[in-house]
């Protein structure tokens, strides 16, 4: 490494090569109107693509589209009212034969009211839910930050009721609750402004899958092989 820059390595060399390749001494002030972390200059990019490919203001149609796209990628989808939710969650875990279920902080207590499996929390009596411990946990129950109808995507951002990223990764069965219409957006362009880049995010579209054998999609490698989504219509 460059002794002048113990962690930077060849920083100045690479930057000077870039400037030489672009044929100028350095970025001029006109090239960087934001000069730091303000909004970037966006003038050269034509953004005449669609904000969404379906009407964004029809909540029932969006919920149906989300449902279809989730099913298309092999998620198991259930629908209910808020009043029916606790019993449905209990029944899904029973049907799976789950003895333990990991729950994140901030999960609405009502969601586990009818759960017969043992609910495990990171600050619970059994100690922190490490990856090794989660490897022996049957299921995990979470909410989400939002869902994208056009792509059948759930976005988790480690917020309340979602927890750390490994929680929804190590157990083999994930139940994710989506509250409609509030959490359902039409498209990727409508999702990004609602998400905070400072939070770690996992976008989930169906259960773990691979296309690595003959380019044919097969469900189930390292993430949860069963993804159940509960769409709750408020």
């Amino acid at each position: 490494m460059n002794p002048d820059s113990p962690t930077g390595g060849s920083r100045e060399l690479v930057l000077s090569r870039i400037r030489a390749a672009l044929g100028r001494a350095a970025t001029t002030p006109a090239d960087r109107p934001e000069d730091g972390n303000g909004p970037a200059d966006d003038s050269a990019v034509p953004r005449d693509y669609l904000r969404s490919h379906v009407p964004a203001d029809d909540p029932d149609a969006l919920l149906d589209l989300l449902h279809r796209n989730l099913v298309d990628y092999r998620a198991l989808v259930h629908r209910c009212t808020p009043a029916e939710l606790p019993d449905l969650i209990g029944a899904l875990l029973d049907a799976r034969g789950a003895r333990t279920v990991a729950v994140p902080p901030g999960l609405p207590p009502a969601w586990t009211a009818a759960v017969r499996a043992e609910a495990l929390a990171n600050d619970g009596p059994g100690g922190p839910l490490t990856a090794a411990r989660l490897d022996g946990v049957d299921s995990v129950l979470t909410g989400c930050a939002l869902a994208i109808a056009e792509t059948g995507t759930l976005v988790l951002d480690a917020g309340p009721g979602q927890g750390r990223r490994l929680l929804t990764l190590v157990p083999d069965h994930h139940i994710c609750v989506v509250r409609a219409p509030g959490q359902v957006v039409a498209s990727v362009p409508l999702a990004l402004p609602r998400l905070d880049p400072a939070r770690p995010q996992t976008w989930i579209s169906g259960p773990s899958a691979t296309s690595d054998i003959e380019l044919t999609r097969v469900e189930g490698v390292h993430g949860p092989r069963t993804l159940e989504v509960v769409l709750v219509r408020d």
Binding site: Y73, P200, Q201, T202, S205, S211
Partner: peptide
């Protein structure tokens, strides 16, 4: 992969 969205996308900013 000809998918509307790939199964998993991870986004992180520094350390969390």
């Amino acid at each position: 992969t000809a998918e509307r969205m790939n199964p998993y996308t991870s986004l992180w900013t520094g350390t969390h």
